[in-house]
Design a protein around this nucleic acid. Structure first.
Lengths: 218, 218
DNA sequence: TAGATTGTTAATCGATTAACAATC
DNA sequence: TAGATTGTTAATCGATTAACAATC
């Protein structure tokens, strides 16, 4: 029984592999080498082979990887086979977008409940889901076996919502609010804050030439 | 004139520093040590000092960093002072959410134009911005000095939209579509794909215990 | 002054890449 | 078989952390 701690860097790349493999499958490509995958993803082929080798021997020497087979393996590693129930808190614009996105997505996440603290929102419908009041959060988590909470409320309310999710026994949180959440170690918190992406994009646009020039500061 | 190549890891942390500093400022905290910042962010204090030192000597030995001053310095580094014009392509749910978000945001990005390929959308309004047809993209980029394009169209259309942005002379792209974009080296492409965050979250929920156990595969 | 904390060098840690025997 | 490509070990590279002189 081989057990290795897989690094965050590797886990982050798995969804990317899956994405490219799905695109290859759509193009009816049957096998692919680490060389080709590396070219498509701008990764080093050795890195791809090493990443995949953490989980088993999926390739064939001299041939490469069978696309269908590798997809199945990675789906298995990420446990996409089983559906995970998700709650969304914050029925604003972003919440709507995510619900809508979720409806068409074919991966394992399923938003099964939506909550909002504002009375005006409670009772309205998003894609057949009735927006519930926050008071029902803990009970619903238990009844519907919800494991992940997506936070799409304003930054000031995010920690409060997180606390309620944690109290309700949530296992993971995807936080869209631009604030850092405190959570116990058992609860995995992932940030999906595109403002940070925009800010670093701005940095790169303004420092395109090369390194940072300290005299810029004056 | 000291010039150093700043690593991606450092640039990614700058917005986080800014975020925490802004929260400290709101609480009227005047100075903060790398120790305290490290505690708030779960970072090593030495790392914070090293990161900041790339850009200049912002702290005072024995005291720490002045919150207001450091905020100004980081804003300067990220060039948040000057506004950057942004175009959004894809007037769907996510596009709406981003426009709305942008209206209230106080940072440097400003969505100044919205485009959509679908006739039904063209001419409708999002926060005072009239949705324009794709044909006007290149001209608008030039006229309005747009530097960044945000892509919120379905995955299949994303590369096509990216090509049009690139042809129009865009400098950076923030891609929300779950697909990998090909772009020349001069154009910085940043991915803001929360599906990937969700997938890795799922991984961690299912492999909480410890390392990966290869016999799980059977 | 004594205590605290920076900026920075050196040490450590971990992740990426190169290289190659194994083998399809 | 000859050519290709894996899985894996060893080498390299880069990022994080520890340690400490400088100094507020």
């Amino acid at each position: 029984m081989k057990q290795t701690k897989i690094s965050d860097a590797v886990v982050k790349r798995l969804p990317l592999y899956l994405q490219v493999l799905n695109e290859l499958k759509a193009r009816e490509v049957k096998t692919v080498s680490s060389q080709e995958l590396g070219h498509l993803l701008d990764f080093n082929p050795a890195q791809i082979r090493k990443d995949l080798a953490y989980f088993g021997d999926f390739g064939r020497k001299g041939i490469g990887y069978e696309v269908d087979y590798l997809i199945e393996k990675i789906r298995h590693i990420l446990k996409i086979n089983q559906t995970i129930s998700v709650a969304l808190i914050g029925a604003g614009n972003l919440g709507h977008a995510l619900c809508n996105y979720n409806k068409y997505s074919k991966d394992n996440m399923q938003i099964v409940a939506v909550f909002d603290a504002h009375e005006a929102k409670v009772g309205t419908k998003i894609n057949n889901l009735v927006v519930q009041p926050m008071e029902e959060l803990a009970d619903t988590i238990k009844q519907q076996k919800i494991r992940i909470g997506i936070i799409t409320v304003p930054a000031q309310e995010a920690q409060n919502v997180a606390n309620q999710l944690i109290a309700g026994g949530i296992e993971g949180i995807l936080n869209f609010a631009p604030t850092i959440l405190r959570a116990p170690d058992e609860v995995r918190v992932q940030h999906a804050d595109f403002t940070k992406e925009l800010l670093s994009l701005a940095y790169y646009l303004n420092h395109k030439e090369e390194g940072y020039d300290e005299s810029d500061m004056d």
